[in-house]
Amino acid sequence: MKYADKIFHMEGVIVEIHDGSVSIDMKERLGSLTIPKRMLFCDTKLQIGQRIGWSMSYPEQMDGEPVERYVRTIENSKANKKMYQQRAKEIKNEY
């Protein structure tokens, strides 16, 4: 990485809880995170509205060239989503 780590404390609030994941809105309207539950440490049961804290730095571009493998996967994934959504519609229409 080119820039020095500027580690700072970040806070967010739990806005969604699922059996497998937790969504956290970062304070200051800086974005949101959805992470697997197992990546979140907690002493008590998770509840919407609880504050979550972590340390982070600024994300930084690692190189200028897109990675072909990721580009292909992203494109495939988008096409895939459309295909499944269409199929789901057709199935619903059948019934």
Partner: peptide, 18 residues
């Protein structure tokens, strides 16, 4: 697998792809 929106089941660092 996916759900009806085409979202992968358990989509975190999923291994979808070639």
């Amino acid at each position: 697998g996916v759900d009806e929106r085409g979202v992968q089941i358990g989509e975190f660092g999923a291994s979808e792809g070639i």
